[in-house]
């Protein structure tokens, strides 16, 4: 038996008794980032595939949410900073070793890209729209001409953004729950799934919803598969990893994780999307709302639980 006491009376705010330095802002940002990545990826994907006509919501309407989500996410990140007035130094430094540095620069590229994408469809979204300045008209014409190229760049950056939301956490060796390379793909897949759910929710075209639901089902199954692997990896790992897994296997996050994230966020929407494809009526909003709820809870729980896990010495 081992008992440890801090006799100096160490009780530093947000550090003791366990770390709690990141609050709701970081999981909210991870959620919005993944959501935007999903929306932008599929907008790009269906343009590259030449399916603009069939997938109107995916390509034209849903991307309006992407810049909004990214700006809100950036604002949440800003709120998380404790030395706020110095935030600009993120953009006067390039630190290749810092995941957060990579994320800041990725956002700096994909946010304007998402604005350009939405702007290039403004005339179709708002009948009678015209740009005030001539150079904007010229720029729009250039973008529309090169839309497939833009779609490719956007898809690549959407993948980087989606993976990054996981790597931000997985790069921390000191927090065993996060320190697994599977977190990158897991957050990517989960983000894409929430993006798809949003588009499904918005779409009024039954055929489009059917196509998207099928893709979403694949993503849900990949996500379940990755979650199983996550826990297999932990349980085959060191004591710190086993203790991290135990938070979800009998520990304090057991119910919230398996009920909110896995059951409500993954399994039930997968069942509903399947029976919907079979032709049984399911309220249109239900599966997407569950996926979005599960996606948000997943990030919230991972950030909260990860900070509790630590090295033992």
């Amino acid at each position: 038996m081992k008992e440890e006491l801090f006799v100096s009376g160490r009780n530093i705010p947000n550090i003791d008794p366990y770390l709690n330095i990141w609050h709701w802002q970081i999981p909210l940002y991870l959620f919005l980032g993944g959501l935007a990545a999903g929306i932008l990826f599929f907008a790009g994907y269906f343009v590259v595939r030449g399916k603009e006509k069939e997938m109107q919501t995916t390509v034209k309407w849903a991307p309006i949410l992407a810049p909004i989500a990214l700006i809100l996410g950036l604002f949440a990140l800003f709120l998380d900073l404790k030395h706020k007035l110095y935030f600009w130094q993120l953009y006067t430094t390039i630190r290749l070793e810092s995941p957060m540095g990579w994320g800041a620069w990725t956002l700096m590229i994909i946010t304007p890209l998402s604005f350009v994408w939405v702007a290039s469809y403004m005339k179709e979204l708002v009948p009678g729209w015209h740009w005030k300045f001539d150079f904007l008209e010229k720029f729009e014409a250039w973008v529309i001409k090169n839309r497939v190229g833009l779609a490719w760049i956007m898809m690549i950056y959407a993948i980087i953004l989606g993976v990054y939301t996981g790597i931000l956490l997985s790069a921390f060796n000191a927090r065993p729950l996060w320190n697994t390379s599977i977190l990158g793909p897991l957050f990517l897949v989960s983000g894409f799934s929430t993006g798809l759910a949003t588009i499904i929710w918005m779409s009024k075209d039954a055929n489009e919803r059917k196509v998207l639901s099928r893709i979403d089902l694949v993503f849900i199954f990949i996500e379940l598969f990755l979650i199983i692997h996550l826990f297999m990896g932990f349980l085959a790992g060191s004591q710190t990893a086993i203790e991290a897994a135990n938070l979800f296997l009998g520990g304090e996050f057991t119910v919230s994780f398996w009920v909110f994230v896995v059951l409500i966020g993954l399994i039930l929407p997968a069942v509903f999307e399947t029976i919907e494809i079979w032709g049984i009526h399911v309220p249109k909003w239900l599966p997407p709302a569950m996926i979005l709820f599960g996606g948000f809870m997943f990030r919230f729980i991972m950030v909260e639980a990860g900070q509790i896990t630590r090295y033992l010495y």
Partner: peptide
């Protein structure tokens, strides 16, 4: 130079 992002606090075992 510190923006208070908390990454280093998370990274310290």
């Amino acid at each position: 130079k510190c923006i208070g992002c908390g990454a280093c606090i998370q990274s310290c075992p």
